[in-house]
Design a protein around this nucleic acid. Structure first.
Lengths: 234, 234
DNA sequence: GTATATTAATTTGTATACAAAATAATATTT
DNA sequence: AAATATTATTTTGTATACAAATTAATATAC
């Protein structure tokens, strides 16, 4: 509800609320991941161990462990003896990732409909209208933020932490591309229309319908991103 | 992650000789993962760094990196300052994992139907009949092996390496449970019937139909595994 | 004898040290 | 001057060393 929450990637809230036991490794995974998500480390950029060690005042050991974890999560690519780079999103990757996100979102829709409480629905509904408002004002950035929250809520309502984790992994990898890819006016209006359908399906707890909308929604998003990727030089 | 998915280093595919570069980290990831899959390390067992270092004649540094990677892949759980354990499958996990596998398999079915060559279909068909033969002879182990191969072939035909990778991650986590869970006679015959339907759908390149069968198939499998898990003490 | 407290041993977490490979810089040849 | 070879520097990969926390063992109290 509060606006200061930077979106996405805070599994700590799900996994363990109050954990005093912290390791540098875990911290570094979180922090470096955030650097990638926020664009402090741009796609394709080299991830220098020395630089990051100095940045965080740690030795190479925990940092390297973090790099390995982030590589496994798909954020970084490791080239043996040449170091790590931020994974760059190619059209090929978009082709692979979006259908998977579609399948996972569709599943989340079905599960959410089965589990959704009236309270949760009300929350999503509120976010929806908030998003529509941003749309009418053509406020892209806030629109995106609320949009993300809605999808997050649905994922959460699905009550499947593993599903949520996997989705976040994929979502993070395409996040920047999604954000950067400006939608056309017509596409934007269609996206909002799709969200209207989501709300209807959610209200009726119609799992298959919601799954269908979500799949179409993300498929369209994929097209937008790909168009944008094509327009940009590698 | 680094089994037979497409290499992250796409430029090297042209040069193609640089595959010989191996790091201890990558090797260890593979070997320890295999130990888990093969049951050399049983679910819930503690993964001692010292033991494994001695086993593979390596220092702790690359081994710990491997452990972090395997934890990220879901094979191990790390308890800070207490070490790593082989992830134990609880009924809750089964409830979460199988629906996701269902969604991913369904997607793979759709994609496979879109891409499947006659040659690939013939291969799957051959495996299918081989599997049926094992069924008639009630040879459970070979049945499972061929079964796995069929699903693997479908996944491969989907031509989506990221999808394959994610599926393998989940599949590995439930592999032992699947294997150990003896099917009842009636369930086994139903499973074979489902496989027949898969072949029909594949032959017709009917994506939705195949997706549907795969989803039902894995849903039934889930029930079997859960029943078995319940029968066993935690 | 059981339970708690204290100490010793092991194990994990992190930092440093050294080896090997890759990159940058310099020199050499044409 | 361009291209190649050679050397120096940096960076990654691995091993070792030390610190902190956990587990085990021992001692003490009841």
């Amino acid at each position: 509800m509060s606006e200061n929450t930077t979106p996405l990637v805070d599994e700590s809230s799900i996994l363990s609320e109050a954990k005093q036991i912290k390791t540098l490794h875990a911290d570094l995974v979180e922090q470096v991941r955030e650097m990638v998500v926020d664009g402090d480390l741009e796609p394709g950029a080299k991830v220098s161990e020395r630089i990051l060690c100095e940045r965080f005042n740690v030795s190479r050991t925990p940092l390297r462990e973090a790099i390995k974890t982030l590589a496994s999560e798909g954020w970084l690519e490791i080239l043996p003896h040449k170091g790590a780079r931020v994974t760059r999103l190619r059209e090929k990757d978009v082709d692979q990732i979006f259908p998977i996100m579609g399948a996972l979102e569709a599943l989340s829709g079905e599960l959410a409909c089965a589990n959704l409480s009236e309270e949760q629905f009300a929350e999503i509904q509120a976010l929806h209208y908030q998003m529509v408002l941003h749309y009418t004002r053509r406020e892209l950035k806030p629109y995106f933020r609320v949009n993300q929250k809605i999808h997050q809520k649905i994922l959460t309502a699905a009550a499947n932490p593993i599903l949520l984790q996997m989705y976040k992994g994929l979502s993070g990898r395409v996040r920047r591309a999604r954000y950067v890819a400006n939608m056309s006016e017509v596409r934007w209006s269609k996206a909002v229309a799709e969200h209207e359908q989501m709300l209807v399906a959610l209200a009726a707890r119609d799992g298959p319908a919601l799954a269908d909308v979500l799949r179409r929604h993300i498929s369209n998003k994929s097209k937008t991103v790909k168009t944008h990727l094509r327009g940009e030089p590698g």
